[in-house]
Design a binder for these strands. Structure first.
Lengths: 241, 241
DNA sequence: ACGGATTACATAACTCGGTTATAGAACTAG
DNA sequence: CTAGTTCTATAACCGAGTTATGTAATCCGT
């Protein structure tokens, strides 16, 4: 009943190596032989610990959601829930921008074996856990939305429904930007994402002026966070180093 | 200088078979041997006509954009540009719902060889043409947005920027819905997509009442179109059967 | 402490799928 | 009709996921 008497860390090292090689060398680096060589074991380790490459990739996808949740969790709650939503959007986008290959896998894009067209057909246990972590990340947006409704910034509405709107818009922007649309660098943020956030906030009940101020507040908070991170030497999420 | 004296239709048949097998059997059906067997040729045909599977997959992706553009083109222009935007959203969503596997490839998800993480690194000619077709589809949204601005339904704004907001939201919803979120069936449309459209329209300058009426008009038009298609026997886009 | 059972792992072989080498067939041009 | 080019089939090659098998290490009950 206890199927892991040996608690070696080979499994964890395989996942870690997978994420690192994925970020550095792209999806084609996610190969059983390459991973085994990197960790210093044989390819059998993949099968004893995961049962196959598919489950390992699902575990990588789950790690992406965990990383995403960590990014969103780092955005604390201020007195301005709409500004918090803007900050969540920036964090979501930054997470994907820093590890595009990882999130390409996490979001089901470029599944290295060509499997898993939709997240619906989840066969492995790791895949189901990944979906669970995805809901965890979504919960951050729901909470901020709920506060925006409760404080009167947004019209009374179902917070899940409103948050799903925000999530759709945010996810769509990030996906399209990662696919190369909206041009390189940060310009997509200023030209599309922030105006999109203001549009949504206003549409959900906020005033243009208040939404604009919240966007500015989030921008300032972001700048401060960026400067702080630069000084402390990349103490953010990226698990590299 | 004329590199195709023999104008056999093997190339077209390969692409057609690829799309059909993809829709029916998922990404793992996109294999050189399976395609060749289906068309009745040898695997060499893939290399004489495309140079490799990667270019063939890019051609499939391009076909997805062409199909998407055809769906959007079928949505004509009425006197209510905001209703037209809702209709475009329904068409966009319907296209993806009917051929999820195809658009998983088109949008860069589940690239069957694990290649092409982002659409940025386009190596094949077919891939560049696919990106071009993508902009073609986007143009439909831009035109409707421009009319909404010109007629005063939306605030004065850059139509590309406003359309990019709509596109992000729409694409995000469709992607997340195809990934299994928002539940099965049509419920995501009523609970998320239409409210999202109203939110965006209001945020872009429309009134809640007018946006709601436009959403209703688009719903009626959609019902009419659905009924008409059912009667004429699926004369829409889906090339199945 | 000891012996059986279980787990983790290495080696090597198997399978499948993309690709390539090569030779022949078909078509066009002159 | 001959020459050249394109297309195609056959067969082999190669890389990557997977599996079979043997072995060392660990755990557990006595």
């Amino acid at each position: 009943m206890s199927p892991k008497p040996r608690a070696t860390d080979v499994r964890a090292r395989l996942v870690e190596a997978a994420i690192r090689l994925l970020d550095e060398n792209g999806p084609e680096a996610l190969q059983a032989r390459k991973l085994a060589a990197e960790v210093g074991v044989s390819t059998m380790a993949v099968y004893t610990h995961f049962g196959g490459m598919a489950a390992l990739v699902d575990e990588v996808a789950r790690a992406g959601f965990v990383t995403l949740s960590a990014w969103l969790a780092e955005v604390g709650e201020t007195g301005d829930p709409v500004a918090d939503i803007f900050s969540l959007a920036r964090a979501y986008r930054q997470a994907v921008a820093e590890q595009p290959q990882l999130f390409a896998v996490t979001f089901g894009q470029s599944a290295p074996g060509g499997k898993r067209a939709t997240l619906s057909d989840l066969t492995t246990e790791e895949g189901r856990e990944a979906a669970q972590e995805g809901l965890e990340a979504f919960a951050h947006i729901v909470r901020a939305t709920e506060r925006a409704i409760r404080t009167g910034r947004f019209r009374p509405a179902d917070e899940y429904q409103a948050a799903a709107q925000l999530w759709s818009a945010l996810h769509g922007f990030v996906t399209l930007e990662a696919s190369g649309h909206f041009g390189p660098g940060e310009q997509g943020i200023d030209h599309i994402l922030i105006p999109l956030g203001i549009t949504l906030a206003v549409g959900l009940g906020d005033t243009v002026e208040q939404a604009g101020r919240s966007a500015e507040a989030a921008r300032a908070a972001w700048r401060a966070w960026t400067a702080r991170r630069a000084k402390t030497g990349n103490a953010g999420q990226g698990e590299n180093d």
